[in-house]
Design a protein around this nucleic acid. Structure first.
Lengths: 154, 154
DNA sequence: ATCAATTAGTGGCATATGCCACTTTCGGCA
DNA sequence: TGCCGAAAGTGGCATATGCCACTAATTGAT
């Protein structure tokens, strides 16, 4: 305790979270590399897969991501033929998304790699600890930050 | 339990972490907005601040981010005059970084906003829980994934 | 001294994410 | 029926991150 080695900003919840995300992201990315998918893309394909031809908005909401960001992220997947979109029958504003046969195959292929990554990670931190951590992260994702901002003097 | 509502991919540690990061990131970003800084930039300025004219590599290592990514992220901060770089006296390969007077002022200004964000967040999840979470995240950041890959039949 | 191997960054390219300003559709009300 | 406000996406612009191929500066071994 001679010279407090840089407070490493470990106090900021946001910075700490991002840092861990960078680290873990690279690990999953590396493991998924053989499939040509990034961790994010894998997650997105999976989300589309489990959904019933979900609308863009539904996916964005589930992943807690900006709708336009989702649109951008989806482009390479559409370009590579893993995903296709189509307008909703009843509401032409709504764009639905689904995997193509190629996309389903790719997802299956990547899932094997994902399992290895997931397994390796959980072997290192402990399955239970991982589950607890996910739970804590899900809680954060569920929080309602609703900036009370300038409380409208109702 | 009629129709297992989409497994929401909550099983993937990586996806869960990213999702929480998006959510929390937006919150901190919103709170820091008045300063014109993004959460990432704030963290970077802080890291530079606590370091002793750190080298690019040292910062990248501390934040667990790619060196080139750091270079890119640093650009807008240099452009806006918050940060300046200079070559190391003894090793011209090394580029050191430090805050400008403007940068220090901006960091101070943003720190007030950050405190509010940090406080609001911790009030919602509990100071202790937040500390535990950061600790768990730091552990992940410290993990050694060393892809054993093709074990070189030594 | 000299040259190979290593180290520290840079630049280019691609994906990840957000915000904002629009455009297109809908839905509801006068 | 016609118009206004809400809902769902798109495109453009900017930052966040990574990887890879290179360049410059050092270090180490001969």
């Amino acid at each position: 305790m001679t010279q407090a080695s840089l407070p490493t900003l470990s106090l900021c919840n946001n910075a700490t979270l991002r840092r861990a995300a960078r680290k873990l992201g690279r690990f999953y990315d590396d493991m998924l590399a053989p499939s040509g998918l990034k961790g994010t893309q894998y997650g997105l394909l999976y989300q589309i897969h489990v959904g019933d031809e979900p609308a863009m908005g539904a996916i964005a909401e589930a992943l807690i991501m900006d709708l336009s960001a989702l649109g951008h992220t989806l482009k390479p997947l559409v370009r590579d033929g893993y995903v296709e979109t189509f307008a909703d029958k009843d509401d032409r504003r709504i764009k639905r998304v689904r995997l193509t046969a190629l996309g389903r195959a790719k997802l299956e292929e990547a899932t094997k790699l994902w399992s290895t990554a997931q397994g390796r990670f959980e072997a290192m931190v402990g399955k239970e600890h991982a589950a607890n951590l996910r739970s804590a992260l899900d809680n954060i994702a569920e929080l309602d930050f609703e900036t009370p901002a300038a409380a409208p003097s109702s």
